[in-house]
Design a protein around this nucleic acid. Structure first.
Lengths: 324, 324
DNA sequence: CTGAAAGCGCTAACAC
DNA sequence: GTGTTAGCGCTTTCAG
């Protein structure tokens, strides 16, 4: 019986003839190892828990794709769960994973950190994706939202835009806060005479639409709008279309994320791209390796498309035309 | 010890005082039931395996969202895996799930049925989403692709279009085959004098782009193009844009799926919508209930947008304007 | 209503 | 290299 176990698990200390017979017999009998028994005894599940804020949208499917790919490479299983935007549900999801997984991949955009720690079992390694939390002994993988936003403002300034508005993301969202910080900082640096113009938004299309309408109604209208994410920018774009405003001739527009939509809308949207699948894959690799990786955040890059194209000559560097 | 088990599992035959003490103690000790031990003994895992062709794209994230929601309602866990388009990998993914899950949700767009049966453990209930397979004792949940395609042709005919081309989906894909069948059938019914015009496609943007170019080059150009899915239609649209062809004035365009993009492109795309999250949720509910549900396929509905709008009056019935 | 005892199917020492 | 044995932590009879 032990020999069978060894043969099936590919251990070295089994005579090759015996191994072959075992494998044949297993196939013959359509034997399937009982996972629960195996992990009860070995105390490992070969399963990684993935807890995400939500399961819809390109962002999350890309993330899952990257994670799934690495999981297959390592013969790991993925137990997924989403908490639908509610922090409380995150705790529920997290606790439910305890005892079922060997490690946890958690994406938590909430700035509030305290409740999280309670839900983590000390026994599990955890990698946090894209979170502001640090110092609770967990790995953290994040995107340089701040630097990305700075890059966009720099691009807009180089293109000759002078009144650059920013449509913010939801309150209490770490990514949103970082992008706003990048905007303010870069504005002070590259256009010291310009006042920041910040409108509220919520990372979705409808809030972008409202922001767009508010912008149209402004006495001194901005000549460029930088939205905290692409969905918001799409809402803006829609509002501008409705009002007969031409983009980019009357007003330039830029987003953040490079969702697939960004390249298909008319005009195509200048944005900041993150390789999301790679992000997911890196997170899982880090979890497997047990590397701390608190080091450098992942640098997103500027993708210039039609929505910020004007007749002025393009800036000499720091930009990259969309290759597609 | 048995009492503790009973108390924690909410069995009735425990004195309420004892139950309260057990629960308090469990909380105090941060006790987490060991899933492997539990399922070794109970022979149930409370886990559902989800095997999808691919994890990216709106379609799959919507599907997952619907599934996840129902899973939470029933306190079920989701073990997900994708086979990246290769039928062989599907078998691997399926076999890997054996012994780890109580049931399986499988999405398989391949027409070839035979290899599938081998990979299914007879012990597990399975629900197949959107597949042509029948009669191997498994539940099947499908979308009425045929009827949807018919509806679109009817709409185009009612709008006054007479030369309606169809850009097909990949060979061997069941959905694609059904949509093509619907096109041919409806064309024969509503426009008996028109010849079918079928171009190859592969459900992606680039094949749509090629089809678009081929259409532009045709001696007798169609006045409407119906694409087997929205991504293909987007490729077509791009080709038409590049050639200076106006949609819908020079040529009408329609897709299938109603991906989020469809409403944002310019002109917005007339398409056939399926509530994908609902489809996923229904599939899981069916799996849980053990209902056969081979009955009626899910009816998709027509969403009329700008890409098929002409000055002719709209048809009196069988259509529905996009409400958003 | 509660306790005792027997496994669930496997892995990991440990002998041989 | 292979067989024997003892659990892994729970649920589930079966007595009381």
């Amino acid at each position: 019986m032990a020999t069978v176990s060894r043969a099936l698990n590919g251990r070295e200390n089994v005579a090759s003839g015996v191994r072959a017979r075992v494998i044949d017999a297993a196939k013959e009998l359509r034997y399937v190892p009982h996972h629960a028994a195996r992990s009860l005894s070995s105390r490992r599940t070969r399963t990684i828990g993935v807890v995400l804020p939500d399961l819809h949208g390109e962002f999350f499917s890309e993330l899952m794709r990257g994670i799934d790919q690495v999981a297959r490479e390592h013969d790991l299983y993925l137990l997924v769960s989403s908490y639908h935007g509610h922090p409380e549900e995150q705790g529920v999801a997290l606790r439910a994973m305890r005892g079922r997984v060997d490690g946890l991949l958690v994406m938590s955009p909430f700035v509030e950190s305290t409740p999280l720690a309670d839900d983590f079992d000390d026994a599990h390694p955890v990698v946090l994706i894209n979170t502001g939390l640090t110092g609770i002994g967990l790995g953290t993988l994040r995107v340089d939202n701040h630097g990305g936003a700075r890059g966009m403002v720099q691009h807009l300034a180089a293109r000759g835009f002078r009144r650059i508005a920013f449509v913010a993301g939801p309150e209490g969202n770490f990514d949103a806060a970082e992008r706003l910080r990048g905007y303010r900082e870069a504005l002070a640096e590259f256009l010291p005479d310009a006042d920041p113009i910040v409108l509220p938004g919520a990372f979705d299309e409808s809030s972008g639409h409202r922001a767009g309408q508010a912008i149209i109604a402004m006495a001194e209208r901005p000549d460029a709008v930088f939205c905290a994410n692409d969905m918001t920018a799409l809402g803006c774009l829609f509002a501008f279309h409705q009002a007969g405003l031409r983009v980019p001739d009357d007003i330039a527009l830029a987003g953040f994320d490079d969702i697939p939509l960004a390249r298909y809308v008319h005009p195509s949207l200048t944005t900041i791209a993150v390789d999301i699948a790679e992000l997911g894959g890196l997170a899982l690799r880090a979890l497997i390796a047990g590397t701390p990786l608190d080091s450098a955040p992942i640098a997103p890059h500027l993708v210039v498309r039609e929505s910020t194209q004007r007749d002025t000559p393009p800036a000499p560097h720091g930009e990259r035309r969309d290759s597609s």
